[in-house]
Design a protein around this nucleic acid. Structure first.
Lengths: 371, 371
DNA sequence: CTGAAAGCGCTTACAG
DNA sequence: CTGAAAGCGCTTACAG
């Protein structure tokens, strides 16, 4: 560092001749500057900004005043390099599905709600959330996640569906020793698991239908590999059994969350001698399929057929009629995941399973059956 | 570092008694490991991973092989600390509006499309995009942004509406010497400006209406402070003038992008002796207001009133009838902004103004006027 | 074409 | 309660 260098602090902007004015990039204030200004050592400043113990109140105040005055903001990279936290939470999302939702211009409510919950919580702790889109195939996913973790060194990672249900992946993450949250799990243990009461929600909607007078209720389920679907299916059967209804009163159609397949399954279900008067769909797309099939058969909703969905994306309010639905607490789950991951990074024990309350939004697609 | 420490590489997990198994957090491979394995110095490895010049092909290959074999991923924090780039792009979004969209469960198409365009481009360069929600009030915004920049040290920042139109803010950012992109500007210069051809789009929709036979067209504009609205308004006037129509043929209602205000303005506009037979709304909410007002007056759309929107969020496809609209190239604009910012961070000259093509999506709300 | 040295801005033991 | 030292994993001049 020679004397000449001091003349130009920042890079030269304006490559075009005539625009060549040296921009002085303002020197960023460092912990050293604060220490000097406050007449203490770096370590003391470090203790203050990290809310550490062993600082005399008067000293703490003096340091805080200088931090404020100089507008000091700790450099995250330096913090991380020094052995501290990265203040980063990495969220892993399904690459193909996310892109598909975005390109279709359909919006992506799940990601929106995740960002909402995640950013709200992270802001509070001066954390940042970074999204990474990862393929679902395990052999591709692990190298991709490995890269993301290697470069970012996040303090925690959030696994969203379907990655959270991938045992190889969660095992691998666990072996890396990086705290990990799973959405839609309730095992807890060495993970932060956040979930909603799927069984309770299913009981609630089934009873709602039962109370209305329905005695034949169809459940259009998601794939068997999807944990929440399993729990909902079991609760559905239980609720009917409790009401003293036979299994035939609750036909279950195997869907895959997509519209087309749902249409097919529903047509079959409705073609039986005593067809259901109400349909519970495991997600919105399949509920829309129910609306579609009903229209095709001249069945009015909710007069001839009641429909309930498990999901409640923005589109359901625009559907005709607006769908009655269970609203997933996505924002709350992700917020909780962040909170726990942050607690863990502070050295607290934040592992465990945490339930977030769902909402049952009754709109216009349920009614007592006639006949 | 004594011998004992070597026994436990990572932190101890499992605070609960009985769960106390020492997890060995796998040691991350560093540039040093690669250098040793390849029999070269750190600097040579650095040159290889940064695609630098002056490395003998054979050496480069050897290093690359070791990178692959060891699964080496450069640590971003270290790169940054060493004086390199941060590989981070910071995107500044309107805090209140973003939260409002999220909480209302209405989704947030703008953020979705931004993420889509931004992440696609960033992925390609091993960059990451981080969102920060900032208040619109300048006095609050600058300290907030200052914090974000101070801690993250991004290589570039993207200013979205309305922050991109805040001169104090852009000046401040410029003084900080951090490359900055503005969305919806076309001045360029010492910024990366990305925009769509608002005037062209307005000309296109106006002509579409003119060709259909409309001779009275109302424009429901956004606030005067919004640059694109200004350009659209001017183009609207021009297009009518070119068609030889008087100013009275193109009444302009001053909206503010919100539904309620739009309803009010529209009622007034429609209460005139020769009311418009078509409405161009500056955003979707105001176009919905037009649909609403029309219904209230017993006007059928598009039979009695044609409606066109400038925005095209997912909801417009659900509207009844589906809206004809100009689709903003949000993803393309943000993608381009990232590309240029990344180029700049590599030392290239990426400043300037860049236009992204819009789309005109004709759906079911425009038709020839009757009478 | 390649390497030895210095330094980025913090934090974590450690010593007092 | 406070500070001096070492080190995190890179990159940037600089020297050869």
């Amino acid at each position: 560092m020679n004397a000449l260098n001091l003349l130009v602090v920042g890079p030269l902007y304006g490559d075009n001749p005539g625009e060549g004015i040296a921009m002085q990039k303002p020197k960023k204030v460092t912990i050293e500057d604060v220490a000097t200004a406050a007449g203490v050592s770096r370590q003391t400043v470090s203790r203050v900004i990290n809310n550490g113990p062993n600082v005399k109140p008067a000293v703490r105040q003096r340091v805080e005043a200088m931090v404020e005055k100089l507008g000091y903001v700790p450099n995250l990279s330096a913090r991380r390099m020094g052995g501290g936290r990265s203040y980063l939470i990495l969220s892993i999302n399904d690459r193909a599905r996310t892109f598909e939702n975005w390109t279709s211009g359909r919006g992506n409510d799940w990601v929106d709600q995740m960002l909402y919950g995640g950013m709200s919580e992270c802001e509070r702790h001066n954390y940042h959330i970074v999204l990474e889109l990862i393929d679902t195939d395990t052999d591709t996913a692990i190298p991709q996640i490995s890269r993301a973790i290697g470069s970012l060194r996040p303090d925690g990672v959030i696994l969203t569906p379907p990655h959270c249900d991938n045992g190889e992946l969660t095992d691998w993450l666990d072996r890396q020793g990086i705290p990990c949250a799973r959405v839609g799990h309730s095992e807890g243990g060495h993970f932060v698991d956040v979930f909603m009461d799927d069984a309770g929600a299913m009981r609630e909607v089934t009873r709602h239908l039962l109370d209305l007078g329905h005695r034949h209720i169809g459940f259009l389920t998601g794939p068997l590999s999807y944990g929440p679907s399993q729990r909902r299916r079991a609760a559905f059967r239980e609720a009917l059994a409790e009401a003293g209804l036979p299994e035939t009163a609750g036909p279950i159609g195997a869907g895959n969350f997509y519209f087309d397949m749902a249409v097919e399954v529903l047509e079959q279900m409705l073609d039986t001698p005593s067809p259901p008067t109400a349909i519970i769909a495991d997600n919105d797309k399949m509920a829309f399929a129910a609306l579609h099939v009903a229209a095709g058969r001249g069945l009015k909703v909710p007069d001839d057929l009641s429909v309930i969905s498990f999901e409640d994306t923005p589109g359901v309010r625009f559907s005709v009629p607006p769908l009655t639905a269970i609203r997933q607490p996505t924002a709350a789950m992700i917020g909780k995941a962040c909170a726990q991951l942050i607690a863990i990074s502070k050295g607290e024990d934040g592992f465990g399973a945490f339930e977030a309350p769902y909402e049952f939004v009754v709109r216009s697609t349920t009614q007592m059956p006639h006949g």
